[in-house]
Design a binder for these strands. Structure first.
Length: 311
DNA sequence: ACCTGTTTATGTCGGC
DNA sequence: GCCGACATAAACAGGT
């Protein structure tokens, strides 16, 4: 229940750490890397709370980017004009968030020397690796659809029927709450779908710990080269059914050729993660209904993950 | 000047 | 109480 004096919950601080918010932004874009300004934008678009005191939280966010090993800096190429570098998630940090929840990490991601020979743990290696992965993904997506995806074209994350437990604060539940439009119409979802974007391939790479094995095992017989996500992580390791070990890097097995097959899968794109048209209900000028971003309002899909429907 | 990125310091909170 | 995760503030350097 909203407190007196508060219009909505939407201007309350979301229960996500800056690391979580940053990870959401990065993972939510097709390229899996974003410049700082785009990360700011993503957060401000989705969380009205962060439209104020920008200096304060943006300083904190920058601190987190630099301080945490899970974020790696990718220098711009000469043909990518703009300020600052791109930021990406380290390929080996996919298991940071317990049970897919973005509320709190299971443990801080630290680079491990022991893993150096298995995965790109040095920032420079990881940066190069991610650049290549981003290129592969983009070219595969474009080849699949004949659609040219402009840079930062959107945070296209699909939502599929979960087959395993999803934490109430898992991204798909966050999404489910966020992209409910007044009247039930997910505007930018329809837009994105009509644009024909193949989202499942992005989906699995965007949220491997959410959509990795569960989706692949139950819905899509087509896998990303078996048990491996595009990040070279064994998808099985993202299944949180009792798996508690830290992410163990494995040899990379990118298979962009398999991406087109996934385009045929049913997809739902939450407007929550769509760049083109931030949810109208989140507009600073439009008083919105409670977004349930506060833990104090665990309504609708928060307790009802099946609110994310698949037709 | 402003933005970006790094580093240090301090405090809170929750789990063990 | 200790420790780790996280938030916040601040100073500083470098780039545009």
């Amino acid at each position: 229940m909203p407190r007196p004096g508060r219009n909505t919950y939407s201007d309350q601080k979301p229960p996500y750490s800056y690391i979580s918010l940053t990870a959401m932004a990065i993972q939510g874009c097709p390229e899996k890397m974003l410049p700082l300004s785009e990360i700011y934008k993503f957060i401000m678009d989705r969380f009205p709370y962060y439209r104020e005191n920008t200096q304060r939280w943006q300083n904190s966010l920058r601190h987190n980017l630099s301080f945490n090993d899970c974020f790696i800096k990718i220098p711009r190429r000469p043909d990518q004009p703009g300020k600052g570098s791109f930021w990406a998630l380290h390929p080996s940090c996919g298991d940071m968030f317990e049970n897919g929840s973005f509320l709190r990490r299971r443990k801080r991601f630290k680079l491990m020397l022991a893993a150096d020979h298995l995965a790109p743990s040095k920032p420079s290696d990881a940066a190069h690796y991610l650049q290549q992965q981003a290129k592969l993904r983009l070219s595969a997506l474009q080849a699949a659809t004949g659609t040219h995806l402009p840079p930062m074209s959107g945070y296209n994350i699909g939502v599929s029927q979960p087959s395993t437990f999803k934490h109430p604060f898992a991204i798909e539940n966050i999404i489910a709450r966020e992209y409910k439009m007044p009247g039930g119409l997910a505007f930018s979802t329809m837009q994105s779908m009509s644009a024909g974007y193949p989202l499942h391939s992005q989906l699995t790479s965007a949220w491997p710990h959410m959509y990795g094995s569960s989706v692949m095992d139950t819905i899509a017989p087509i896998t990303m080269a078996g048990d491996y996500s595009p990040y070279g992580m064994p998808l099985k390791s993202f299944c949180h059914g009792g798996q508690t070990l830290p992410a163990i890097p494995v040899p990379i097995k990118p298979t962009p050729a398999s991406l087109p097959c996934l385009a045929a899968l049913p997809t739902h794109i939450p407007a929550f993660l769509t760049h083109h048209s931030p949810p109208q209900s989140l507009s600073p000028t439009s008083p919105r209904t409670a977004t349930s971003q506060s833990p104090a309002a665990p309504g609708d899909s928060l307790t009802n993950p099946s609110a994310v429907t698949v037709h």
